[in-house]
Amino acid sequence: MKGRILLGHGGGGRLSHELVETEILPRFGAGPLQSLPDAATLTLGGRRFCFSTDSFVVQPLEFPGGNIGDLAVHGTVNDLAVAGSRPRFLSLALILEEGLPLATLGRILDAVKRGADACGVTIATGDTKVVRRGQCDGLYINTAGIGEVIEEFSLGFAGVIPGDAILVSGPIGDHGAAILAAREGFRIDRGPVSDSRPVHRLVEAIAPLAAGVRFMRDPTRGGVATVLNEMALGHHFGLRIRENDLPHSPGTRALAEMLGLDLLHVASEGCLLLLCARELADPILERWRTFPEGRQAQVIGEVTDQAGRVVLETAIGGLRLVDLPSGELLPRIC
């Protein structure tokens, strides 16, 4: 392949997809990686489990609502949870830059500990490397995780029919907006706060309704727009959402409006997007709303019969496409 890696290749949008399709899939796409799951479901000794990994390079290391430590726990826990599993074990690999204050490292590791305890996961193995000053930006973290499959879920797009409901568990875009505000030094009263938090309780809580749940995903990099497009792409159905029903925090929306960002493109780190049979929408909302992380859950739209098309009914009642973000919307967001 000619050329070089551009920042846009890491944006989670169209360029990222192209990179994976041209460089990763031809080499590794024959096995479980073929469908590019955030977490693979594997069988070993007759038991099914989920396996996932994620690297964290967020800048700044500490931001309103969290730090790279809790983010590294929640990121992998959430990938395991939305695959329909109960997160159990995590690995923790640290790449530290010479000169990083020990006090900073301490705060970050405390956040890892608190996050892992709250999620009921055990840090089972780990690694530490130190590189010279200037060779990494303070601290990078990789976590990998293993979860037990919750057998009630049978996720897949085969059973999706027009009228199925699209739900989100909370306000969208809070993490991306908080990182951007912190990085750019915007001083905003009641500004955006990251939603870095686990969603495994929301998954666990709907296990009794799992038969009608078709799909779950946490809309991180690339935002809700990317997840919706990934769902509809190449499948027999389309999706339609309503702008006026999207839950959002006022500070996040203010920042997005000021900078001209589409909230649908901005990352969340503690939000669950779910597709289910229409009659399950209310029971799921009812269960989710008993948790703080699900209090603002909403039905945001439904499945249509227009294959591959994702459209938005705008605030004033027009209809437009929901596109993937392109380029380097927000580098180093997680």
């Binding site: 050329g3 551009l6 846009g8």
Partner: peptide
Amino acid sequence: GDMVRVPGSRSTLAQARAEGGRVEVCY
């Protein structure tokens, strides 16, 4: 940010940055 990906005659600022140029995006 918009200028970074705009094509010049031969290249873009994004490519110049990938090749080591210092291009800083601001708001």
